[in-house]
Structure formats: C-alpha cells, structure tokens
C-alpha cells in the first residue's frame, strides 16, 4: 500500500478571504511579520500496491476530475515517504 498526497490550492489570482481572515487573526494574536496566508486542502489517498507511473496517473486524473476544480484551483501530487 502506498500513500499519495494531493495538495490543492486556490490559484494565485483567486481571492482567498479565508486566508485574509487568518492574517487578521495573526496580528491580533501577536504573530508579527505574517504578510500573507493562503488556505488550501490536503488529501491523503491510499492506493493498492506501489505508487508506480500508472497508479500515479490514475490519482492525477482523480485530482483533476474531483479533488480540485481546475477553473479556480491548482494541485500537486507527491508520494508520501
């Protein structure tokens, strides 16, 4: 069994009001010097067998079909250690 991590982030040009709210909270809590926060999602996908090329390609199709909305989000895949 292998685990594939899929990180999904809003594209840089898409407004992230949740990230902005977090920056506001940072200031109130005394975490100075925090200029920007953008909030994303992390998926941990467990698959049968080794994370070889074909299986990774399948997870990539899963990410672009369901896990991320390519209209507003980018995603990255990596195999967990």
């Amino acid at each position: 069994m292998a685990r594939v991590i899929v990180d999904v982030m809003l594209k840089p040009e898409i407004l992230d009001p949740q990230g902005q709210a977090i920056v506001g909270a940072c200031g109130r809590l005394g975490f100075s010097g925090i200029e920007q926060v953008r909030q994303g999602k992390r998926f941990e996908v467990e698959i049968d067998g080794e994370a070889d090329g074909a299986r990774l390609e399948e997870v990539r199709r899963l990410a672009e079909t369901l896990l991320a909305n390519p209209v507003i989000e980018d995603f990255e895949l990596r195999v967990a250690d």
Binding site: L10, L15, P17, Q18, A21, N69, V71, I72
Partner: peptide, 17 residues
C-alpha cells in the same frame, strides 16, 4: 452547473466570509 462545466467560472466564498 459550474462544477459540471455546463456554465463557465466558479462560485467561491463570499468576500465578507
């Protein structure tokens, strides 16, 4: 409809949250 790509664009979190 947007998620189905029957319409372009997307709906995101209100600016005010």
């Amino acid at each position: 409809l947007c998620e189905s790509h029957l319409l372009p664009g997307a709906l995101t979190r209100n600016r005010s949250l």
